[in-house]
Computed example of a mutant assay.
Amino acid sequence: MTPPPIRQGPVTVRVFSQRLSSTPRGARLARRLALHQLHAWGIPHGSDVSDAVAVIVAELAANAVTHGRVPGRDFELRLALVTGSVRVEVTDTCTEPRPPAASGVRTAGPLDEDGRGLLLVDALADRWEVVDREPPPGKTVRAEVDLPGWLSLTARQGSVV
Results as ranks from 00 to 15, higher is better:
A58P: 06
L81A: 05
S17Y: 00
G104H: 02
T23K: 02
W41T: 04
G117R: 02
T140V: 15
R142C: 11
S159I: 10
R25Y: 07
A62L: 13
W150N: 12
H67T: 05
V65S: 08
V13T: 15
R19Y: 01
G68P: 00
V11A: 11
E89V: 10
G84N: 06
A61T: 02
T154R: 15
P4Q: 11
E89H: 08
L118C: 03
P4T: 10
D126G: 03
R106M: 14
V86P: 11
G72L: 04
T91G: 04
R73T: 09
T66S: 09
R116S: 13
A62I: 03
T2I: 13
S47M: 06
R7I: 15
W41M: 06
T107D: 13
H39R: 15
A34L: 00
G9L: 11
L111P: 00
Q37N: 08
E134W: 06
R32V: 13
A123V: 10
L38V: 06
L33W: 02
P24K: 12
T154W: 10
D122Y: 08
E113T: 14
D51S: 14
S22V: 09
V82S: 13
G104W: 01
S103T: 13
Q18G: 02
V121K: 07
W41L: 06
T95C: 11
H36N: 12
R98S: 15
R87E: 14
G104K: 03
A27M: 06
E59D: 11
A80W: 01
E89K: 10
A123G: 07
A52W: 03
V131P: 06
R28N: 05
P24R: 13
S47K: 02
D92K: 01
P135L: 00
V130A: 05
L147I: 06
L77W: 00
C94H: 13
E76N: 03
A27G: 07
S17F: 00
N63S: 11
H39G: 12
A125I: 02
N63Q: 08
V53Q: 09
V145I: 04
L77N: 00
D92F: 03
R14G: 04
T91A: 14
P44D: 12
D132S: 15
V82W: 08
E144G: 05
G9A: 11
G84S: 06
R116I: 12
V90G: 08
V15R: 15
T95Q: 15
L33Q: 05
G84F: 02
V86M: 12
G84H: 05
V88K: 04
A30S: 08
V11E: 13
D74A: 14
F75W: 00
G109C: 06
A80Q: 12
Q18N: 09
A102L: 08
C94L: 05
P10K: 10
A123Q: 14
V131E: 12
T91K: 09
I43S: 05
L111Y: 08
R69Y: 09
S21Q: 14
